[in-house]
């Protein structure tokens, strides 16, 4: 009996380790081998009690044409084929029922739909940042977007339906670098 309980303890420890390990493995593989896309975004700053402060990413590409032969349900998982526009940013081309043989695709969730388009939740809708940094990012983005000079975008690696966020860029600079330059400019000016 004691040995059985001991075995169960070891198994439960292994299961506890396996969950974060499998999460890491899947993401690392995608970051290493996945195809890179850029998504236009608008960052805003909310809060998660467990994972801390993050920047919610309001993605321009989070919608696709309504499929004709598919019955949709709220929060349903769907497969979305990706394409790239003339400016080099990714968008959701269409919703498909089976994983395509060629081209990149993502697993997303249905948020809402109307007669023409389906609003989607893509698997990278938040960028976690240090607690003081997240509001800064939102402020920096707002300042930029008002002047309409630069835009914010994220780079994402996509592989086998999984998308992993690489970096958030403002004015073509990684966000940490952008904020550093802004701070330096503020001190000098």
């Amino acid at each position: 009996m004691n040995r059985l309980f001991g075995l169960m303890l070891v198994l439960s420890f292994l299961a506890q380790l396996a969950v974060p390990a499998s999460m890491i493995l899947g993401r690392e593989t995608t970051l290493r081998d996945g195809q890179q896309f850029r998504f236009r975004t608008a960052p805003v700053d909310p809060y998660d009690p467990f994972r801390g402060r993050f920047v919610a990413l309001n993605l321009d590409a989070a919608s696709a044409p309504l499929p004709k032969d598919m019955k949709l349900k709220y929060r349903q998982k769907v497969l979305v084929r990706l394409a790239v526009d003339e400016a080099g940013f990714a968008y959701c081309r269409d919703i498909v029922s089976e994983a395509p043989q060629e081209g990149a695709y993502l697993t997303a969730r249905v948020q809402s739909w109307n007669k023409e388009t389906v609003r989607l939740q893509l698997p990278f809708d938040r960028y976690y940042a240090e607690e003081d940094l997240a509001p800064e990012i939102e402020r920096a983005y707002r300042a930029n977007s008002r002047r309409d000079k630069h835009e914010a975008y994220i780079t994402v690696r996509v592989r086998d339906g999984r998308g992993v966020l690489e970096e958030l860029y403002i004015a073509d600079l990684p966000v940490a670098e952008y904020l550093r330059q802004q701070a330096v400019a503020k001190q000098q000016g």
């Binding site: 999460m23 801390g52 939740q121 990278f124 976690y128």
Partner: peptide
Amino acid sequence: IALVGQTYHIS
């Protein structure tokens, strides 16, 4: 689990 989610910006 939360820290892995934070590191990889998991939705």
